[in-house]
Write a protein that binds this DNA or RNA. Structure first.
Lengths: 199, 199
DNA sequence: AACGGTAAGTTACCACGGGTAAGTTCCCTG
DNA sequence: CAGGGAACTTACCCGTGGTAACTTACCGTT
């Protein structure tokens, strides 16, 4: 009754990272729906129940991928904005950082934008990313237009987040469009539109 | 060997409409993933293979729902824009019509925005909707800013489409936000931002 | 150094739902 | 009154998410 020994025993935290990496790769390549848990497990060099002991369900694994990406996105954009030397530069650098992030984390982004609106829970997780960025941007705008209605600031922030998302998708289809150019198109409308409001 | 007779025999076109209606209802209520084909079939009063003979697959049925909604959306927005008495009014009426459409076709919209990015094919179908609206808007902008770079016009149109989408989702969470107000927030940035470009 | 206890993994299985093959009933036409 | 085809049904297959029960390696304790 010889059972093949486990290939490699490994600490919990490290396994979790391995699984997350494999999941992003497999999900983004084949698409979440077409990717089986067995495929992810195989990529790690492990069997299915291991995944379930760590993430509970296929959707749980997807959620973990999304959450990780969300954290990275906020990190990257806020660092970039912090390095700015003025309000216009802040908006510009933040936007640019967003587009750069997509280049670096392309599979993770593909997963987010194309394949993960699978259930109420995952939709909420995606919305959480947008809400996070919206709040962040609204905060920036509040500094520039201090006497504006807060509700209106959120509205503008939503405009910007939506615009960025769409420009990003467009850029995915047409790689000739650089991040700089996309940023410029956004600034054309948004920054110019904001001009009469600034004190 | 008595087999229960078919409940009701009906022409192909009519069945197709019945199935589409049922699919929008069932998919949007339970969510596409959780909705079984049997559930849709039951709603129509029919068995599963009937659905497959009409739409080929579950995804095919979803695609048909999306396509139908897309057609309706272009119809509604272009009719509204055609009734305008000037460029600003055109942008405003088109935007407003979009938000009104969401109110009328709420289940269809819920299906689009929350539950259908399921595969490459359905994602393409959703993108097709956005491309359609983007082209439409770029055409409008071209009239207003005749000497602008066409590529830039598409960029601006993407900004607008993305902004509308996000504002719509925000409005879904906060029903106090009226369609008029959402439109106004968009106009704040976009129309004002366009001002220095107009001849 | 032997020894339990626990964390890490495995095998083997279930159930549900998408999809299909084959058979049945009804209607319409010649 | 055939008989042919369109509309439907029954009964089934099978892939995949998810789980229960068992095994094995590691580690601190006496």
């Amino acid at each position: 009754m010889e059972t093949r020994a486990p290939r490699q025993r490994v600490g919990r935290a490290e396994r979790e990272r391995q699984i997350l990496d494999a999941a992003v790769a497999v999900f983004s390549e084949r698409g979440y729906q077409n990717a089986s848990m067995d495929a992810v497990a195989k990529q790690v060099g492990v069997t299915k129940p291991v995944l379930y002991s760590h993430f509970g369900s296929k959707e749980g694994l997807l959620l973990a991928c999304i959450t990780q990406t969300r954290t990275q996105l906020l990190e990257v954009t806020s660092v970039a904005a912090a390095a700015a030397d003025g309000p216009e530069d802040m908006l510009r650098r933040g936007t640019k950082a967003f587009f750069d992030f997509l280049d670096v984390q392309r599979p993770a982004w593909a997963l987010l934008c194309s394949e993960s609106a699978i259930s109420a829970a995952t939709c909420s997780a995606l919305e959480e990313i947008r809400r996070q960025q919206t709040d962040f941007i609204a905060g920036m705008l509040a500094v520039q237009v201090p006497d504006a209605d807060p509700h209106r600031l959120i509205g503008w922030a939503n405009v910007i987040v939506g615009a960025c998302e769409r420009l990003a998708v467009w850029r995915g289809r047409d790689p000739r469009l650089t991040g700089e150019q996309a940023t410029e198109y956004l600034m054309d409308l948004v920054w110019t539109g904001l001009a009469p409001r600034r004190p």
